[in-house]
Design a protein around this nucleic acid. Structure first.
Length: 471
RNA sequence: GGUCCCUUCGUCUAGUGGUUAGGACUCAAGAUUUUCAUUCUUGCAACAGGGGUUCAACUCCCCUAGGGAUCACCA
């Protein structure tokens, strides 16, 4: 069993592409098959430097390693279509010889004009077949010194019916099919031809791709029939949508996988989130490792309707992942995702642990960590000022300073019992006991749990700030 | 516009003829007797509409409406 992910190198990996790649990957792992990566770079005008490297990097970041593809030749390479031109030419010639394709000399201008008049008349825009029945010999002669493209011949009547694993049987009337160009003037094949030839030659037997390919699937099937090749299984995935339900696109938010990486999302969380878009396990579980996903993945549970990419839920899920990290892994990750303006040396592990529960993404580190790196601890507003200046607060501060030499203050349980002791001594309790201490040492009304702050701050810092608050 | 696909809470979804239509995110309230957060509890919130079929339809069929994709010498 072999599946493939066949993106065109546009410069980055789209999250929709990530979802397609993921489903292919999961399906291959589930069935013990091969996950192949092929680069569909037949459009020279859209070449982007470094796009392939970037694509592979994003795939790897997400944990989707391919078994076969660029750099991993299993005997079916090369895996970039721009390096397979001779192969395509052979098959196109075969189609020509068999009468399943013909050379077309129509100019771009004529075709554009044709489309315009058709559109103006409310007609379907399609090739009018001018070169379709041209004498073969005449065509060969013209081809000697005229530019041409090759079009595949499509039946004029009848219908094509095929089975889609997620949608069931789909029927297209042949008259809807245009004589698709399969070889461009520049000598490159179009997607349709290259895709079919490669899938066959590379042994791909299951095609899992986005729904946008559904309308061109009949053309691909026709090609398989012309070549007398065995048809692969098709499964068209529902689209990922913008909040307005149009196809997920730039302008309405981030679509590149690297954008999500840069915004501080964990690869596992992104994968988990995207897996649940258009697929579900059939029970109420929502958090899955890659292994769990591949164990239970099945095309039968893929939905038909498009799914809105809801960033709110991704945020929530990412927070779940951050909180579920083993402490040492968490610490290591945080240090790698520290904002540039924060010096890692100024932060101890206790401070990093203190902010963990308030993180949704690594990007939240900056604002949450601020109180641990700043020297400013003046009360943030009038309410805060009032609380530190209360008579009872001063009493609490004094009592606290007296106990500063007890080491156990600085661990969580020790601090709690110290506070209880102070409560007993001073009679101050609740909000009036805790808040003044918080504000005196951080300046803020809100923040992580006080014991965690105390642990992270250490004696010296607390002493100076408490003494300052007494004045 | 033609063709094809789709339609359960705002969003992601469960559901396969008989259910108080379930879960999750978001939002609201409460609790965790220090805040925010976390966590927990509770709550708000949906079968697009109309016809059939059936003792019985969210579930099956038809129509309508709405949404989407696609109609390139781009993938």
């Amino acid at each position: 069993m072999k599946v493939r992910f066949a993106p065109s190198p546009t410069g980055y990996l789209h999250v929709g592409g990530l979802r397609t790649a993921l489903f292919n990957y999961l399906y291959a792992k589930k069935l013990g098959g091969t996950f192949l990566l092929r680069i569909e770079d037949t459009d020279q005008s859209r070449k982007v430097d470094g796009a392939v490297e970037n694509l592979i990097k994003s795939l790897q970041w997400a944990g989707l390693d391919f078994d076969e593809g660029p750099g991993k030749d299993l005997g079916n390479g090369p895996y970039a279509q721009s390096e397979r031109l001779d192969i395509y030419h052979n098959y196109i010639q075969q189609l020509l010889d068999d009468g399943h394709a013909y050379k077309c000399f129509c100019s771009t201008e004529r075709l554009t004009q044709l489309r315009e008049t058709q559109a103006a008349q409310g007609m379907q825009t399609r090739y009018d077949g001018l070169c379709r029945h041209m004498d073969k010999e005449a065509a060969e002669n013209r081809a000697q010194n005229e530019a041409f493209v090759v079009r595949m011949l499509t039946p004029e009547t009848g219908e094509l019916r095929f089975k889609d694993e997620v949608r069931g049987t789909i029927v297209y009337p042949f008259k809807e099919l245009d004589d698709q160009v399969i070889l461009k003037q520049d000598g490159f094949p179009t997607y349709h031809l290259a895709n079919v030839v490669d899938d066959h030659l590379m042994g791909v037997d299951t095609v899992i791709r986005g729904e946008e390919w559904l309308p061109s699937t009949p053309k691909h099937i026709l090609l398989y029939q012309y070549f007398k090749w065995e048809l692969p299984t098709f499964a068209h995935l529902p689209l990922l949508l913008n909040p307005d339900r149009s196809k997920l696109s730039k302008r309405q938010g981030d679509v590149a996988v690297e954008d999500y990486r840069d915004k501080g999302f964990l690869p596992d969380a992104l994968i988990n989130f995207v897996a649940l878009l258009g697929w579900n396990p059939g029970d109420n579980r929502e958090i899955f490792t890659m292994q769990e996903l591949s164990d239970i993945f099945t095309l039968k549970r893929v939905n038909k309707a498009g799914a809105v990419f809801d960033i709110e839920k991704l945020n929530w899920m990412n927070g779940q992942y951050i909180r579920a990290l083993e402490p040492n892994i968490y610490l290591n990750e945080v240090r790698q995702h520290l904002p540039k303006n924060i010096n890692a040396d100024t932060l101890n592990d206790a401070a990093l642990m203190a902010v963990r529960e308030s993180l949704s993404t690594w990007k939240d580190l900056e604002k949450n960590l601020e109180l641990f790196v700043t020297d400013d601890f003046t009360p943030e507003n009038d309410e805060a000022k009032e609380l530190v200046n209360l008579d009872t607060s001063k009493i609490v501060f004094k009592a606290f300073i007296d106990k500063l030499n007890d080491v156990e203050i600085f661990d969580i349980d020790g601090f709690k019992s110290t506070m209880q002791a102070i409560q007993k001594e001073t009679g101050v309790k609740g909000k009036f006991l805790w808040m003044p201490v918080r504000i005196a040492i951080t300046g803020h009304i809100h923040g992580p749990e006080l014991p965690l702050i105390i642990e992270a701050f250490g004696k010296e810092k607390i002493e100076t700030r408490l003494k300052a608050a007494l004045k």
